[in-house]
Amino acid sequence: MTCQPRLFSVVDKWLLINQTCLVCDERTDTPLPLCAACELELPWLGDRCERCALPLPMAGLTCGLCIKHPPAYESVYAPWVYGFPVDSLIISFKHNSRWPYGRLLADILGQSLRDRFNTGDPQPDCLLPVPLSTQRLRQRGYNQAAMLAQWLSRDLGIPCHDDWLLRHQDTAAQQALDAKARKRNLLHAFSLAPQVEVRGLHLALVDDVLTTGATAQSLARLLRQAGARQVDVYCLARTPRPDAPP
Results as ranks from 00 to 15, higher is better:
P57Y: 10
L201I: 03
N18A: 08
Y142G: 08
V231N: 00
H168V: 07
R98V: 14
I91W: 01
L127F: 09
P5F: 00
M147W: 01
L132E: 05
W164T: 05
W44Y: 04
T62E: 10
F84M: 07
G213Y: 09
R199E: 12
Q144S: 03
W44L: 00
G60F: 11
G110Q: 09
L42W: 06
D47C: 12
V233T: 07
Y73W: 14
T239Y: 01
D178R: 04
P100H: 06
A36H: 12
H202S: 13
L187C: 12
G200Y: 03
E41C: 12
L152I: 07
T30L: 13
R229A: 15
L15W: 01
G141L: 03
L192Q: 09
Q139V: 11
H95E: 15
D115W: 10
A146R: 08
Y142C: 09
L89H: 05
L132V: 08
G120M: 03
W80H: 00
G120S: 04
E74V: 14
A179T: 13
C3S: 09
R103N: 09
C35F: 12
Q19C: 06
S97R: 15
N185M: 05
W151L: 09
Y234D: 06
A36C: 10
Q19P: 05
R114M: 12
L22K: 05
L104Q: 07
